[in-house]
């Protein structure tokens, strides 16, 4: 009898391995996609450190950081969505729909304009701006993100807000922070305005190895925390009272999970700008294969987030090459219809 279940669990493990393979395939596609005309053999040579200086520069200084940043940010945002949807009992929750990303974007813009944490390198170039002080930007982005989280948690705990009202609150908070970011731009000089505007487009090109290490390190710590609590998240799927009766410290779990989510969402936003909807859609896609079993849903969401980001990045570079489209706009084009689909399908969300 129980062998059925073991087979079923093995099937979910297969989904995990399949997704990991897709991430690798997407990374290879991303590595070979671009306007420089490098052949696959030249790319392989460069990866192995044997190619020309030019090919090694393109592969190691341009494409590899993009892949690293895309995979790390995609995984971080997807985990954030996955956990927020669980602890807030809301299928529409994610850092972008709740306004956490917008709060973080305001914090980061504030750091760039007023605290001198970023400079414009070349408004017309791919890099646009460079974050000169990643820690200041991260801290300010985190403060902006955590301020939003505090409001959402306050509404959730004090007013017993419904899931749809929570999203409406997210819309209000997003508007507030977008307005505040506009004010920063209004009072900034021309160069800073273009810097912030360019920054808000979202780009994987601006994150260097130092930023990637920071995002990856924090995401890994977050992943370990989430995985450590995977049974608690599973229990929470049955509701708060049932989870408490199974020994889950529900209030602490919700609080710490939301803080961790805010942190990794803020760090992602700080270095690559606002990337919408990845956090919302990645968990929903993998749920179709592994259900709400957080033992598998957390790692599968992270991998799916990485796949979606890498795919969006390839499309953004290839669609009208050599122009690189803002990746944030592309993920919104991808995510917004799915968001509407979820609302239609789960029409009973109250």
């Amino acid at each position: 009898m129980s062998s059925d279940y073991n087979r079923y669990v093995r099937r979910k493990s297969l989904v995990l391995f399949a997704l990991a393979t897709v991430v690798l395939v997407m990374a290879v596609i991303s590595l070979s996609a671009g306007s420089s005309g490098l052949s696959l053999s030249e790319i392989i040579e460069a990866v192995l450190g044997r190619g020309t200086v030019q090919s090694k520069t393109i592969v190691w200084n341009v494409r590899m950081p993009r892949i690293g940043a895309g995979a790390a940010v995609g995984a971080a945002l997807a985990m954030t969505g996955c956990i927020m949807q669980n602890v807030l009992r809301n299928p529409l929750a994610s850092s972008s729909t709740l306004g956490v990303s917008q709060g973080a974007a305001f914090g980061a813009a504030f750091a760039i304009v007023y605290l001198g944490a970023g400079i414009q390198v070349n408004a017309a170039g791919a890099a646009g701006i460079t974050v000169t002080n990643p820690y200041t930007v991260t801290i300010c982005a985190f403060l902006g993100g955590i301020a939003t989280t505090a409001v959402i948690l306050g509404l959730y705990r004090i007013s017993s807000i419904t899931p749809s009202a929570m999203i409406l609150a997210g819309v209000a908070i997003s508007s507030l922070f977008t307005g505040a970011t506009s004010l920063i731009q209004y009072f900034a000089d021309d160069v800073m305005v273009s810097t912030v505007v360019y920054w808000t487009f979202g780009s994987l090109g601006r994150a260097g190895w130092r930023e990637i290490a920071l995002i990856s390190g924090l995401s890994l710590l977050a992943f370990l925390y989430f995985i450590f609590n995977r049974w608690n998240y599973n229990a929470l799927e049955s509701g708060g009272h049932t989870a408490k009766s199974l020994g889950v410290p529900v209030d602490t779990l919700i609080l710490i999970s939301m803080i961790v989510c805010s942190l990794i969402a803020a760090v992602s936003v700080a270095f690559v700008g606002c990337i919408n909807f990845i956090g919302l859609i990645a968990p929903h896609i993998v749920r179709r294969f592994v259900g709400n079993d957080y033992r598998f849903l957390i790692p599968c969401s992270a991998l799916m987030g990485a796949v979606l980001m890498l795919a969006a990045d390839v499309v953004s570079r290839m669609l009208i090459a050599p122009v690189v489209l803002p990746i944030g706009a592309l993920t919104s084009f991808l995510g917004a219809p799915l968001f509407l689909y979820i609302i239609m399908k789960k029409g009973n969300i109250k």
Partner: peptide, 16 residues
């Protein structure tokens, strides 16, 4: 152990 008055229904299998 406790069975609540209202159970939240999720996309989890019976076994899980």
């Amino acid at each position: 152990s406790y069975v609540a008055q209202k159970n939240e229904i999720s996309q989890m299998t019976v076994f899980d």
